[in-house]
Structure formats: structure tokens, C-alpha cells
Design a protein around this nucleic acid. Sequence first.
RNA 1: GCGAACGUAGCUCAGUUGGUUAGAGCGUCGGAUUGUGGCUCCGAAGGUCGGUGGUUCGAAUCCACCCGUUCGUACCA
Length: 515
Amino acid sequence: MASKDKKNRLPARLPRGFIDREAGDIRATEEMLAAIKRVYERYGFEPVETPFFEYTEALGKFLPDQDRPNEGVFSLQDDDEAWLSLRYDLTAPLARYVAENYDRLPKPYRSYRAGWVFRNEKPGPGRFRQFMQFDADTVGAPSVAADAEICMMAADVMEALGVARGDYVIKVNNRKVLDGVMEAIGLGGEENAGRRLTVLRAIDKLDRLGVEGVRELLGEGREDESGDFTKGAGLSKEGAEAVLSLFDLIGSNERSGTSNAPVIEKLKASTFAETAVYAEGVGELAEIASLVEAAGYATDRIEIDPSIVRGLEYYTGPVFEAQLTFEVPNEKGEKVVFGSVGGGGRYDGLVGRFRGEDVPSTGFSIGVSRLAAALKNLGKLGSENETGPVVVTVMDKSRLADYQAITTELRVGLNADLAPSERPVPVEMYLGGSGMKAQLKYADRRNAPCAIIAGSDEFDSGRLQVKDLLEGKRQASAIASHEEYKEERPGQFDVARTNLVEEVKALLKRQRGEA
RNA sequence: GCGAACGUAGCUCAGUUGGUUAGAGCGUCGGAUUGUGGCUCCGAAGGUCGGUGGUUCGAAUCCACCCGUUCGUACCA
């Protein structure tokens, strides 16, 4: 019921952090998902789907790093008082799924899935409370060959989406290397868990704050522009410099060509190598490097970078991050590097939470919306101007049956011998209540290739008017007066009723430049 | 979460020290053109001035709180 009372009218508004998606967006995303899927299928991964809701405890809220355990997730209580939460990533639900179906799944279990995830956080530009991820995981594979494969697959995905080699890079690090470094500077043990987190967070900010900012955060702390003070990790000068020495290794590869060997050598030569977990981590990185190199993936695609941190909750070994390296202008016209569009790593303990033993697993997650925004920027996505429907206009409402017959004839005829992969030609009869002028305006706005026009003259003569809207637009720009415009009827021609389908087919072909 | 700025029509924005009926451009709809998308001209619709309360004879304008947006920062599985 329409509300005349303006004061009490229901406001039509979206909850903050959520967006409506429109045709162009949806089509572009579907295209993208299909391309990613093809890559994963090529590697032998199979699809699986889990629901939006999981039991809250299954999502892993009791894992470390729960400064604010009740924030960030949408939760509600079920009839039986059990807490349910909307999933905030696709990894924890996969771990639940694998644990629940462990005995009947082939191991290693290789699967991919795309889906919406939800985070109850402050939204910002390009940052929403509902967004899509596309994951691929290998569960039950202890070998770093699985990690190497995930990295290569991530690189393949970027190229399948049209990102040129050199415009992206898959960065690889190992959590064990960072753990080893922290152990070496005296941050080992349970009592230092909090400071270790602070150190990892500091390292993670290299991109944004630079070496100086990280140095402050490793020491006493840092004051930002607004005067806010962030407490640091409180490391000694030597400890901080030791951590920062990792950054010196970045770029070792570029200087030497295409192999990750130089950075591996430097990692091995470091004094940290005396720490067992560090040495183990470097060993794994060396193996990954040699595996991807043997497969032909050089540092222009997969690069070892000791400054990569990624998620703090559950990664136990190698971690990956897909970065776009080209610059794009932001709203202010400044050039900025697009940055991370996906990440992942090894999470040996996640499935084990549901079972007695750890199940070694590794995976990768693509931020679909973010990557879509990047691709749009590259011009690799967003064929916005899709051809719209052929519009059959209605001039004489008493002859609706005739217009309907024409519409159906075109709809069937134009789509008769399409291959299954070809986009159908949409055909519609104008269903609004307005006159001819508005109908053609409608066709124009729908980006229609042509409109069919018929009144009593046409029905009597057995010939219909076909108006080529693209050709008409072209001709119209050369016509100044409205009288002449009316007289010319640019782009318009008449065809025999019996030849309608063939004539429209020919017109569409001409427009595609095939005739 | 903390700090700051901003919020006027669908969009981009004017709006004087607090003073009559809040404006423009673009867009939308209609007419000139009863059967033809453009151009041009004419006209119309469209506003809880983000919300609520307060100060005042009088508030888009001043004050408080709230909501939203943006920026910085923290967190980010």
C-alpha cells in the first residue's frame, strides 16, 4: 500500500557496509569466477559448498589473537540456545567440513569454492561487511610441494584473468622464519606470545609506514598524525635492528635475475640459522623455490619475501600473498600500488581442532570484489555496453496479439541455432504504458540494437519498420533541424513481415561488423 | 574502538552577521512534434536543509546528542 504520509514513509535504505550489485557487476564477476574455476579444475580441484552459518565455536574464536572475541562476527542464537555465526572466511568452514566427512574423503582432499563471507566491522571504501572470496585448498598434504602448487596456481589465476606477467607477483614467506627470528632475539616461550603478535603486526605495516614506522613500533611505539599513540613491542635496539634486517633481503632477487636462490642464500647465511625453527622454515622456502623454479616459475611470478606476514590466527608454515604491482590513480589522482588481492598459507592445526591429530593443510583465498575492482582498472573487466534487447514497440494497444506474435517469432528465430556457450539475443515487447517517443527512448536506454515499429499502415501493407538504433544515432548527429530529423527517420527501413527474422539477423550481423 | 572533518533536490554544488516563499546546472517527466531515440526551445515534478532536542521573536545557519559519509589510527580470522 502506497503511503501518502511522507513523515511515516518507510525509508528505502541499505544497511551500512552492504551493497546492491547490478547487471554489469554481476556479469563481470561471473566471467571472473568462471576463469578462476577453469584454472583450479585444471589442477584437479573439485568444487564443494558449505552454508553461510556455522556454529560459532567451529569458526575458531577460541584460537589465539582474540583481543575482542565478540566483535567482527554476525551471530545469533538458535532455538536450542546454541550460538550460530555467519562465516567470516571459507577456511574454517572447510576445516569443519573435512573433519566431519574425514573418513569418506580422498586424502589429500583438493577442493575449491567461491562464496560470500561476512564481517561485522567498520566498512570503508572498497571494504564491505559482505564480500566474496574464492578459495582453493589441499587438505592432508604435509609436503611443501602442496604449498608450491598453490602458489603456481595463484599465479596462473592472475594470468587467466588477464593480469600480465610483471603486473602481479605471488610473494612467499614462512611463519617459521619469523618465529625463529623472534626466538633468536629472546621472544620465545608462552610468556612472550603477546609481544610476538605486536612484532608481527609491526612487520605487516612495512608497506604503509615504511621502515621508520616499523622501527618505532618494534621499540617504544609510534604517534600518528592525529596524536594517537600506538604502543610498541618494546624490543631492545639490537632486537629491533635484527628484525629489520629481514627487510634488507627484499629485492635481493631482482638484482640477480630470475631465481630465488640469492635471497635463500642470504637467509641461510644469517646468524638466525642457529635457531632450529628458523632453519626449518628457510629449508621449506628453499624447497618451494626449487620446485616452482623447476616448473618454470621465476621471480617475476613467485618471489620469496621475508617481510610477508598474513593472518595471525592459524598459519603455521608457508604463507602467500598475491600482489598487484602496477600503479593506479586513486580518487585524488595520486598514483598508488593496488596491493594485495589474495593470500593464504599452511594451517596444519585447523582441522585438528575437530580431531585428535593435526591434519596438514594449505590453501589460498582470492578477494573477488577487490580483484574485480583492480581488473576494471586494468580494463580487463566490465564490458559494460552489452547489447540490449530487440524491442518490439506497441503503437496500437488493440493489436497486442500481433505484437506478441512478432516478438515470439523474433525470440525463437534469432536464438534458433545458437551454440550453448553463445549469449542469447534478448527480444522483448514493450510492456509500459507510454507512447512511441518514450518507447524508443526506452529502447535507447536499454542499449537495444534495433526496434520494431508497426501501426495500422504496416499491418495493412504486410511490411514492418525496423529501426537500426546504432546507425540512426550515427546519422542523427549530422541532422540539425527537427523537421529534417523526422523526415529522415535515420537508420530506419521497412521489411516484409515474412522476412522479419532474416532481416533482423542480418542487421545484428552488420552491427557486429561481420557483414 | 579512538581522533578529526563533512552532511542542502536523483547527481554536482550555491545559500550573505541568524531574517519573508531554500536556488542553479545536470538528470527525470511532459509539451512544441496526436506514429519515431538525437539537437533546440518551453514547462513541470522533485527538498522532513541527515535526525532529535535546545537557544531565539525568528534556525539550512548557533549549541547538544544521535545517525550517516570521508580521512587518519587501531583491529582484520
